[in-house]
Structure formats: C-alpha cells, structure tokens
C-alpha cells in the first residue's frame, strides 16, 4: 500500500482524495437508492396483503 502511495508522487493526497470522494458519493447514492427501493417494496407488499386496492365487491383496482 505504501509502495502504491509512494508511486503516486508528491500529489498522492489529491489523487487518493479524488477517488475516495467519488467512492463515498457514489456508494451513498447506491445505498440510498437500494434503501428507498426496499422501503417502497415493503410498503406496497403490506398494502396489497391488506387488500387496499380491492373494492367492497372484492374486485382489485
């Protein structure tokens, strides 16, 4: 690891900070998207289990 950092020369901090910040932002975006998808799926499943879309006659809307 130290060898890799040394090979990046005097600006290693800028290069690593660039990749680190990009990884942080894109990981955060991915986690937020996955969490939102899971939350909506849970909510939809719960509503469908309760028959929320059914009319009194039993027909689904």
């Amino acid at each position: 690891m130290n060898g890799l950092i040394d090979s990046l020369g005097p600006h290693a901090g800028f290069i690593l900070a660039s990749y680190g910040s990009a990884a942080l932002i894109l990981t955060g975006l991915t986690l937020a998207a996955l969490r939102d998808h899971a939350a909506q799926k849970r909510a939809l499943d719960a509503l469908e289990r309760r028959g929320a879309g059914r009319q009194p006659g039993g027909k689904a809307r």
Partner: peptide, 22 residues
C-alpha cells in the same frame, strides 16, 4: 432502480388513498 422505486411509491400513494376511502 430509482424508476422502479418511484413507480412503487405512486402505487403505494394510490392504494393508501383507496384504503382510506374504503
């Protein structure tokens, strides 16, 4: 993934309104 979540969010909104009306 975001589009799928948004479609489900709208379905959840519609079903919640229908359930409240029922």
């Amino acid at each position: 993934l975001g589009m799928r979540a948004e479609i489900m969010r709208r379905r959840v909104r519609t079903l919640t309104i229908l359930e409240a009306e029922r």
